[in-house]
Design a protein around this nucleic acid. Structure first.
Lengths: 200, 200, 200, 200
DNA sequence: ACCGACGGGACCTCCCGTTGTT
DNA sequence: AACAACGGGAGGTCCCGTCGGT
């Protein structure tokens, strides 16, 4: 049973997540937040200590939205290859119903916060760690189960997959054209299939 | 014979390129530029109309620095595979002597300017176009010469290579660890080698 | 029941009306307003969007102050000649208790805004229209009632009276000497008396 | 034989007179002057110590232009009434070929400088004195010669004529409509004719 | 005699955060 | 819990004037 405070706080974070993800930390003002939430300054500062506080919580919300998509996608899949393919599939349809406006929050925050906002950068690192470990575990477990080639390095697999996806997210966003994402996903799908263990 | 104005302007752009690339457009203030250049506002505004003007010129400078590295790297190479490998090699040693502080200016500007600064975003698009076409031409010519597999799609190759590199730049920067770049480069090198045409 | 905001806003406009009327639009800075109101920038910008907004509202206030004097003066008078004389009388005693420091706001704004500030100039036109119509109506009604000569042109009468008064305001202000105003009023009073209808 | 310095100085003053007369002292920047003259800052400051210096000299130039029109108009006239009518006539055709853009420089400067720029205000006073004395002398001499009514007060005549004209200048400028000037001139011409001495 | 480069400061506006009030 | 009012400062831009060069 959410209290009124929780509802307002969630409402603020919902708007803040979109704004910060699109405009960046320095590019988003409290006035932007006031306009987006319909609240006045006092109404916002009742729930957060300062702009930093909002940005950090909004980042967490944005990441959790994206993660929810991953979790939903891999839930039904048991085989490591299927799980990896499911993750890739998430990005194929992300343009249609994005979990958060403005592209990948981890990528955005990593670029935006670097050299500027250590607290945010640490959050971005942590979120990236979680994502890397998600893929890492899938690969590790797939190897144990004999679903993936035994010589596949989980570190390299997770790094390559994530790097390629993030680069594709950037390209598609920069051009406003999902073609770049699709080309990249095709490549990654082929790569993943290549890692499938060969049955004797 | 560069005039004093040219020297000062170059000095401003040198500082601005580093600042904007690290802190972003909104995150960089004219006061930052004053501190970095040692000039006062009057001295800076004598050479540029406004902050936008500086940011755009600084971006061009940063991109030209990176491009210069590419051009130098592929100059000695004739074979398409060698040329692509040379480009990858540039990123292997980029951490040691970066052409510009703060990482890839195209990536940074693409993320920073999106939804916020159309003029900068257009510059980023244009710079990205140039880079894509560089790789595209190498692949195209390589196919014509029979150096690369005839079924290799130049669009996909350029997209995949760039996306993966940019993602790796982001990862290495986020963690302050070149391991991610190295892993990714290893993967890309293998990918490029795979595209080499098989002689009968 | 005026809210605190209304009081502060009125306080700002009171100071702004005097400042703009004396120093002009370009000659009055927000720092001047801060000093005159005792408020800081945040306090002022909470009530007005920008300097223009303040200047326009301050002009309206200044004009309304002057108009109030006219209305009070002609209230007790029924005869057209008496009404016109009452208006002239207002200027006779204006130096003792000016409704607004700095002289006639319409004159000041007309000169100050011309070729420079279209919005202010339009306000000045509108205020001048109101004033002209006030005199115009007095003359028109006086003719209908047979109080004024039937050959008197209301347009010319209002134009001449206003032009002469404004010129006198300028002269008296320029020299800091009400003699010029008094001479002019004497002339206008004689002019008005001349327009009285001759009874058979 | 004007030196090059004189030519440049006159060129600057020519532009400055128009700018200051239209935009006022505070509303005119050195950058405006640079754009209008085609000179750079150094070129202007070679001939004037500062902005004040330019404004004062430009005002003198503007006034001398207007005065030249008066002098030319009354030169051919010997009778006092004819001379006064000639002065009025100057304003009738001023809209067609104004001696200086922006209206009467004395009026503009009187309003613009009041409460703000004592040096400029003193110049405006002095220019106004000259003008008043011009009319004063015409009236005085006209009375001595028996051309004007012996009971006409030169002080009142000059004050009324000037005040009315200046008010009309303001009205015509404010509305961008010479009708107001024409109505007022008609009134003043009738007034002047009334002052003609009655021959026995 | 004119231009070029620059200092140092004022300009208006917007910023984030705090306080008092309802 | 929300708003209204405000402080104090930083934001980018433009200002006037100086000085070295040519």
């Amino acid at each position: 049973m959410p209290s009124k405070a929780d509802i307002t706080k969630a409402h603020i974070l919902d708007a803040a997540a979109a704004l910060f993800n699109q405009q960046g930390y320095a590019g988003t003002s409290m006035a932007d937040l006031m306009a987006a939430t319909g609240l006045k300054k006092g109404g916002i500062y009742n729930h957060f200590r300062n702009k930093d506080d909002i940005a950090l919580a909004a980042f967490d919300l944005a990441v959790s939205r994206v993660n929810a998509q991953f979790m939903g996608a891999i839930r039904g899949q048991r085989h490591a290859v299927d799980r990896l393919m499911a993750i890739l599939q998430v990005y194929r349809h992300m343009a249609d119903a994005p979990p958060i406006a403005g592209g990948c929050p981890i990528l955005n925050t990593a670029i935006d916060s670097d050299d500027v906002h250590p607290a945010l950068r640490d959050r971005a690192r942590q979120a990236m760690d979680n994502w890397r470990q998600l893929i890492h575990r899938i690969v590790e477990k797939g190897k144990q189960r004999g679903e993936l080639r035994p010589d596949l390095d989980p570190e390299e697999a997770s790094t390559v997959i994530i790097a390629t996806i993030e680069g594709a997210v950037m390209l598609s966003k920069l051009y406003g054209d999902t073609t770049y994402m699709e080309r990249t996903l095709r490549h990654l799908q082929a790569y993943v299939q290549t890692q499938r263990a060969q049955h004797a």
